[in-house]
Design a protein around this nucleic acid. Sequence first.
DNA 1: TCTATTTGACCCAA
DNA 2: TTGGGTCAAATAGA
Length: 334
Amino acid sequence: MASSSRGVTAERAAAAANDLVEARDGAATLRAFLLQLDDQRAPWAQGVVDGVLNRLSSAMAALDDVSGAAVAGGQLSPAAGSGSGGGARPQQSVSSSGNTKKRSFSRRSQRPTDTKITSTLEDGHIWRKYGQKEIQNSRQPRSYYRCTHKSDQGCNAKRQVQVCEADTSKYVVTYYGVHTCRDPSTIPLVVPDGAAGAAPDRANNLISFGATSNAAAAAASTGASSSHQYLAMAADQLSTSWCASDDVFSFSSSAGSLMQVDELIGAVVGSAGVVTSTATAGSAGLDRGGGFGGVAGGGGTGSFPPSPNGLGSVVVGSFGSVGGDDDDLFRMDP
DNA sequence: TCTATTTGACCCAA
DNA sequence: TTGGGTCAAATAGA
């Protein structure tokens, strides 16, 4: 890995810290708004936002540490211990129990590369379901998919799909790893950032990864992975909680604008360069080439019925592996 | 017959 | 100890 690309100046870290402060203020504003909501979900949502606030504070604290190191040394090399997220590195562990069943798989050590709420499970890739689990504290089971090209091309992309509890017509899709397969039918549709912002439609089903600020670029290149982790977790928590994001909430943000919840999520998280929500041109048709039936939709007898909408969400931008083998972060599209 | 999904069991990290 | 990620045999559908 190119460690120099992950270096960050104290100035950039400070800019990222400022964005974090703004993000925290935004979340605090959201919490204040929720306090006024006359909705039975409000207390629960407040708790979720509290969690987001805590994580943002943790991210700020982590970034403070990082900034201090950067100030001291001028440049930060995150690989040196703290930033790597502790022992959160996938290990190809082999069963040592001598069991008749040989199993070798990495577990739970990958951080999500993306989390999004979508009304359809189609995302331009062909997935194969390999498991389903009942998850504690969740009424909806979680389904596990891996890229269908894992066997032939060794593509390690995975995703987890869970029906949104707040809105069972939506799915919370969490992606892990990036596609290394080259099958044309699996190439995701990429929409230029500008085009994505061209139509002021709804922002529900579009996540854009555009570099929106210096801090974003700094955060993308910085080694403050712990901050990224916190932010990703915060984003995950927020987006998971607000599946029913068709609801439009009006509140007075720092920008004084009317925001949708998912836009807020993008605003909160995007400020650190992890995920940025932008306006969308709505769903776009995607010619997948040969029929893949209900594969991506967990079709057939799958637990999640295929959506009639076809492609309902578009990921804009590109994934990039920044840093370590499994330390995948979003790289901003130029 | 082949391919994908289901589902119970296994196993590891927290 | 337990929750959750993965495996793999069984099953279903084309």
